[in-house]
Design a protein around this nucleic acid. Structure first.
Length: 326
DNA sequence: TGTAATCAGTCGGATCTTCG
DNA sequence: CGAAGATCCGACTGATTACA
């Protein structure tokens, strides 16, 4: 796709790239107080424009028509597909990229007119993925020369600002819960993919000599085709995980213990009720499915040696919140 | 507008399966 | 064999729809 692009494709592409870079710069501006909101709106514009550019290039008609075959018009202009429609055309239903975009479409409607700073922290992974997917897709469809800008750096973080918890308003809680519910409905595979939400550890880099530590932060593409490299990262990740477990003090509960816990809180429920609930919220696979380990890790883990499932305190809280406190 | 029919969700007990 | 957990099934309830 290296030959010159048709003019209208190029125009859409420019608009798209411009919006995306604006989005990133708003997000990274330390003074920004409407971070996720502005970022979301601009990135939606960016994605809308790039999908239009792609459809235009592929000669797909992306305008709405009236029943009589004429174009729908708004103030005289042809009415183009909104992002949710374009995304349906381009990506499969289960595609993490699509799920990621759809989250932000829904989010935009919720946050456009509100200032919800507590949301920023909640959505770091998804926001990062939205941008990375954008750039990957841009390069894949239109070529390397359109890569966003080669001067983007990882912003410097003030570690305290991440640790400090801001007071969370009622409005924010409701949107945060919306995000959590959305995640809850995803297949484990999608939720854990880097395309849906980008997760990374920031590991201090210790160089033996000047040149190797020149670049303080380095992005390494997780390349599953290079097993030797990957092994190194897996080791690092395992080292981090092992340290995390005792700190997080994760309590795993057997089903009967879940019921005990609920009883302590004053809710008396039966085992069959609990079975219904994990069915309802798709927390773990049923016994007849092959892949037994695909649980929603927030609420449930598969205990291989015992061939059964354990549930978390978060699951108990979730049940109280969703089912018992209505 | 009122009543009957239908449906989805919930609940709890009986029963089945697995494992130590 | 017994405990734990999953599954099945019938009863109940409240909301919605159909119909006289």
């Amino acid at each position: 796709m290296n030959r010159r692009l048709p003019r209208n494709v190029k125009e859409l592409l420019d608009k798209s790239i411009d919006s995306a870079t604006q989005a990133i710069s708003t997000y990274n501006d330390p003074r920004s107080s409407f971070r996720t909101g502005n970022f979301t709106v601009l990135m939606i514009i960016a994605w809308t424009a790039i999908t239009h550019a792609y459809l235009e290039y592929k000669k797909v008609n992306y305008f709405y028509k009236e029943k009589n075959g004429r174009y729908k018009r708004i103030d005289g202009d042809k009415m183009a597909w909104e992002l949710s429609r374009s995304v349906k055309e381009i990506f499969d239903t289960g595609d993490p990229i699509r799920k990621n975009i759809e989250l932000f479409i829904k989010l935009r409607n919720k946050i456009e007119h509100r200032n919800l700073p507590a949301l920023d922290k909640e959505l770091i992974g998804e926001s990062q993925a939205l941008v990375l997917n954008f750039e990957d897709w841009l390069i894949e469809k239109f070529g390397e020369q359109y890569a966003l800008i080669d001067t983007l750096f990882v912003p410097i973080q003030l570690s305290r600002s991440l640790k400090r918890t801001l007071p969370v308003s009622k409005d924010e809680t409701s949107v945060i819960n919306f995000v959590k519910d959305y995640r809850g409905l995803l297949e484990a595979e999608v939720e854990n993919s880097q395309q849906y939400s980008f997760k990374a550890y920031l590991i201090p880099k210790i160089g033996n000599h000047r040149s190797s530590s020149d670049l303080a932060i380095e992005f390494v593409k997780y390349d599953s085709d290079n097993p030797q490299e990957m092994e190194k990262y897996d080791e690092a990740i395992i080292a981090i995980k092992e340290k995390q477990v005792p700190v997080a003090n994760i309590n795993f509960l057997k089903p009967s213990m879940v019921l005990e816990k609920l009883k302590e809180e004053g809710y008396i429920k039966t085992m069959s009720w609990h079975t219904d609930m994990w069915h309802k919220y798709k927390v773990r696979p049923t016994n007849d499915t092959k892949n037994r380990s695909s649980c929603k890790s927030e609420y449930c883990v598969y205990d291989k040696p015992h061939n059964d499932y354990l549930y978390t305190d978060a699951w108990v809280q979730y049940l109280i919140e969703k089912e018992l406190n209505k």
